[in-house]
């Protein structure tokens, strides 16, 4: 080996050491059970370890068509209220609402409902419960007759899901007597228990287990594409129309008309 190529090789080996330093830490931290941080400020983990964990969901995957033809994947209420009046529907939750909201706007227009959806990016049951005034504000402002909650996506991998019990309870208590449903997160990997926590707190027939559907994911491999989210919403609407305790009219939209207002909230930092 010449002196020149030896020098280049050494430079590259040093560079590899520089690159490996953060790589080793990030990979180790991703696999580690430990979390570093102080208070709310926690060092985020890369999702590398998730690729190595058992990702298989323990349920048979179905799609919209199957739901409509076979027995439902969701629980059916014993006593039924069939509400045929136009509703004021408040949707609130995390970024998953982007996909649901767009399709729900078409349902609202088709079925003469009023719709307000409030997306709080990167939010969780913890954030909504700890800032419950936000929900109270929108309930007071919009006076909904029906509420749809979509939360849980940002808590799929929390270490102690049982600690979320109180947050879910706070949200449900705030909703009070208004009829509501809770759309579970569309898991892309097996969660550590948030779905179960929500289902335990929400009456079973109010909970839509989105994790049991298949989705085409967008470029981040997390959020369903808009087309897939539209199918997801069709499943939810069919369920709200036919299976929940308090059923409202949500016929499949025939046109592309939309009706609804959106409010976007920044992630908390």
């Amino acid at each position: 080996m010449t002196e020149k190529s030896e020098c280049t090789l050494l430079s590259y080996l040093e560079l590899i050491a520089v690159l490996l330093f953060p790589a080793v830490f990030i990979v180790w931290y991703s696999f580690s059970d430990k979390e570093f941080g102080k208070g709310d400020m926690i060092l985020q983990k890369a999702d590398i370890a998730d690729h190595f964990r058992n990702n298989t969901l323990p349920v048979t995957l179905v799609d919209t068509v199957v739901i409509q033809e076979q027995d439902s994947i969701v629980a059916t209420a014993d006593s039924i209220v069939q509400d045929t009046l136009p509703q004021r529907i408040l949707l609130f939750g995390d970024s998953m609402l982007e996909g649901i909201g767009k399709r729900m706007e078409q349902y609202a227009a088709e079925n003469n409902h009023e719709l307000l959806y409030v997306i709080w990016y990167a939010s969780s049951t913890k954030i909504w419960a700890e800032h419950i005034d936000t929900l109270k504000h929108f309930m007071k402002k919009f006076q909904p007759t029906y509420i749809v909650v979509s939360l849980g996506t940002n808590e799929l991998f929390v270490k102690e899901p049982n600690k979320r019990n109180s947050f879910v309870k706070t949200i449900i208590q705030t909703i009070g007597d208004i009829p509501y449903v809770w759309i579970g997160p569309p898991n892309w990997k097996k969660d550590t228990g948030i779905n179960q926590v929500i289902e335990d707190n929400v009456e079973t027939h109010r909970f839509f287990p989105s994790q049991k559907l298949t989705y085409k994911r967008g470029s981040d491999n997390i959020h369903p594409t808009f087309a897939s989210a539209a199918k997801w919403t069709d499943s939810i609407a069919y369920w709200m129309n036919n299976d929940v305790k308090h059923r409202i009219i949500l016929e499949l939209p025939k046109k592309n008309d939309i009706c609804g207002k959106h409010i976007y909230l920044q992630p908390l930092r």
Partner: peptide, 12 residues
């Protein structure tokens, strides 16, 4: 790299 992780929200 850690700042990138801190600021990422899943909305890549």
């Amino acid at each position: 790299i850690q700042l990138v992780l801190q600021f990422s929200t899943g909305e890549v």
